[in-house]
Design a protein around this nucleic acid. Structure first.
Lengths: 185, 185
DNA sequence: AACTAAAGCGGAGGGGCACCCCACTTGTCA
DNA sequence: TGACAAGTGGGGTGCCCCTCCGCTTTAGTT
């Protein structure tokens, strides 16, 4: 929410923290040590906490750009001939991305401190909603299902497959499964 | 794995810890403070760590009985007329249970320290497998789907809905969704 | 009942972490 | 260049997990 700060040194520290956080989170996931991040960034822990008031705020900042890429992919797919296929493809991409980007999935969970600074979630929602609507009018998506529902399931799958040896593969497979159904009863 | 210990005082402490853990985990989920549990149990922290070498071991012990109940439900449902419905019903029950029992779902996630003492997961697997096989021979379940797949998805849904105001409802709804599918593409 | 070896106990301590306070430095702009 | 706001980071607090090790309790033996 605060966005990059104004003073030159402050902005430099902000970027350093972001870079360090990226590395650490890639290694340890969402529970990476904030102190270690500050250490790697060469700043005091107070500086980190000033720029990012909560762990979640830091995670959101780290993942923001990559989530944006996913949203752009959604816009591209919005012109695809098969609306159902487009939706499914995009959701698989989301699942794979979440499963291979350590810490992302858990940061998407509606936690206690979600309210204000939430950003990535809504971004994906609006991007995916376009695909879902299109699929629905094409008769390819079950009516009554919201994009929130679908993304919750996909995110959950990311979370559950994050530690799998072949996380990407597994996430895609389970997503396909959940989208097409398991029982016919 | 160690099971209740032999000496009388040790067994008493074991039970006290279990009782205290139940309360604390109900309140704080899987991240409950082990020290607080020991404190509430009137026991030194070393005693807790001796009886339960890892957090996971404690969680498994706490949830073991309730998971057993679920497994018995599965055996009851194995005689139901509609095999697909029986499977779906049971999976919904698993999802609701996981979503409303704080900490359970995350303790089921295949973590780093999963291997040896894992217990609840396999229990549910074998119980559910019966229902799945029956559904499959009845043509109600998509072939190629394993019970591990389905339970992973259901557990993931529990995890994602754990914090929802109406967790049970939401877990059941999303499970139904995932089982019957979302897109027809 | 007394004894003893083993089993169990728990306080204290090491190491880590998140988060905050506040005296100090540094950038900015007139 | 000077003054002031903006920004900094070391150190402190409180909590946590986990282990070491000297002490207490139990269970079995005579």
């Amino acid at each position: 929410m605060p966005g990059p700060p104004k003073r030159a040194d402050a902005r430099r520290n902000y970027e350093r923290i972001l870079a360090a956080a990226e590395e650490e989170i890639a290694r340890d996931g969402a529970v990476a040590s904030l102190e270690e991040i500050a250490r790697r960034a060469g700043v005091g822990s107070a500086t980190l906490h000033r720029h990012f008031p909560s762990r979640r705020a830091l995670l959101e900042a780290v993942f923001h750009d990559r989530v944006e890429v996913l949203c752009l992919q959604a816009r591209d797919l919005a012109g695809a001939p098969d609306a159902g296929q487009a939706l499914a493809d995009w959701l698989r991409a989301v699942a794979v991305f979440g499963a291979t980007t350590r810490g992302l999935a858990s940061s998407m969970l509606p936690g206690v401190e979600a309210a204000a600074d939430s950003d990535c979630g809504p971004m994906l929602m609006t991007a995916g909603d376009i695909l879902l609507r299109r699929a629905r009018t094409a008769g390819a998506a079950r009516p009554g299902v919201t994009i929130a529902d679908v993304l919750t399931i996909v995110n959950a799958i990311s979370l559950a497959t994050e530690q799998h040896p072949r996380a990407a593969e597994e996430a895609a497979r389970l997503t396909t499964l959940a989208l097409s159904g398991v029982v016919s009863a």
